[in-house]
Deep mutational scan, measured.
Amino acid sequence: GATAVSEWTEYKTADGKTLYYNNRTLESTWEKPQELK
């Protein structure tokens, strides 16, 4: 079967924080998503 690919993209901001963006739900979060833990 196909492996579930994470929908989350990780961005590094200018101040060194990490922003997570979900390509499916168009949601963005500063918290690390469950799927990435």
Rank of each mutant, 00 (worst) to 15 (best):
T25F: 01
T9L: 10
L19S: 03
E31D: 11
E7F: 07
Y20P: 00
T18S: 07
L36I: 09
A4T: 14
T13H: 05
E27N: 03
Y21C: 14
T18K: 05
K32Q: 09
A2W: 06
T25P: 00
E7Q: 06
A2N: 12
N23D: 06
G16H: 02
E27Q: 08
L36K: 07
T18I: 15
A14L: 10
V5W: 11
E10T: 07
Q34K: 10
A14W: 05
D15L: 04
E10Q: 07
A2E: 13
L36T: 08
Y20W: 12
K17L: 07
N22P: 02
G1R: 14
E10V: 08
E10C: 15
T13I: 04
K37T: 13
T18D: 04
L19T: 03
L19W: 15
L26M: 15
G16P: 00
T13N: 08
R24S: 10
E35L: 05
T13Y: 10
G1D: 13
A4L: 13
T29P: 02
G1S: 12
K12V: 15
T9H: 09
T29Y: 09
P33G: 02
T3P: 12
W8D: 01
A2P: 14
L26P: 01
Y21I: 15
V5K: 14
T18M: 04
T9W: 07
E27H: 03
Q34P: 15
L26H: 15
L19Q: 05
E10R: 02
E31S: 05
K12T: 14
A2M: 13
N23V: 14
A14E: 11
K37F: 13
P33E: 01
T25M: 02
L26N: 14
K12C: 12
E7K: 03
T18W: 05
Y20R: 01
W8I: 02
T29R: 10
Y21Q: 07
E10F: 05
W30E: 13
W30V: 07
N22E: 03
P33M: 02
S6L: 09
A4K: 11
A14V: 10
Y21V: 15
E35D: 11
A14T: 09
Y11I: 15
T3F: 10
T3H: 13
T18A: 03
E31R: 04
R24W: 08
Y21K: 06
T9R: 08
N23G: 06
E10Y: 04
G1V: 12
S6Q: 13
L26E: 11
T18Q: 03
K12F: 09
K32G: 02
D15H: 04
K37D: 15
Q34M: 13
E31M: 04
G16K: 02
T25D: 02
K12R: 12
Y20T: 00
T29A: 06
R24E: 09
W8T: 01
L26W: 06
T13P: 01
Q34H: 10
T25S: 03
N22I: 00
E31F: 05
L36P: 07
G1I: 14
L19N: 03
P33F: 02
Y20S: 00
W30T: 11
E35I: 07
Y21H: 07
E31K: 04
T3K: 13
N23F: 08
A2L: 13
Y20D: 03
D15G: 06
W30H: 09
Y21T: 06
E10P: 04
T9P: 00
R24A: 12
T25W: 01
E10G: 01
T3V: 15
S28A: 09
W30I: 07
Q34Y: 09
S6H: 10
A4E: 15
E27M: 04
A4M: 13
A14S: 11
Q34A: 15
N23T: 15
E27G: 03
G1Q: 13
E10A: 06
Y11P: 00
A2Q: 13
A14I: 10
